[in-house]
Design a protein around this nucleic acid. Structure first.
Length: 110
DNA sequence: GTTCTCACA
DNA sequence: TGTGAGAA
């Protein structure tokens, strides 16, 4: 049906996604993962968060949330943190690449 | 609301 | 592996 992008799709608001940065509490609500667990994973080095300027609060962007989501799914399937982390790292490479591509060139039809 | 540490299952 | 409780 749609062969070309005539208008902007709200579901493809990559600019918003790239600017989307929330705290650990919001991530726990979105991912359903307790804040304790998120800090625990980061403590193990599975996930990484960015510090907000002068604040010490962790800030997570879309990629971080996606990573947490992937880890959670894998662990629930029976994988361990290290195993899940490895698989997620692999996935993140593709995800970040595709995401960057789409966000930088949303008018490309492929 | 967030951070950290100590301790437990 | 994940959580509870206390303290700031």
């Amino acid at each position: 049906m749609d062969e070309k992008h005539k208008k902007e799709n709200p579901l493809m608001d990559f600019d918003l996604l790239k600017k989307l940065v929330v705290s650990i509490g919001d991530v726990s609500e979105i991912t359903g993962v307790p804040t304790r667990k998120i800090r625990y994973w980061e403590e193990k080095g599975i996930i990484k968060s960015e510090k907000e300027g002068e604040g010490t609060t962790r800030r997570y962007n879309y990629l971080n949330i996606k990573k947490i989501l992937l880890v959670q799914e894998l662990i629930e399937e029976g994988f361990t943190l290290d195993a899940a982390a490895k698989k997620v790292e692999k996935r993140m490479e593709n995800i970040s690449e595709v995401f960057r591509k789409l966000a930088d060139n949303p008018t490309s039809d492929e």
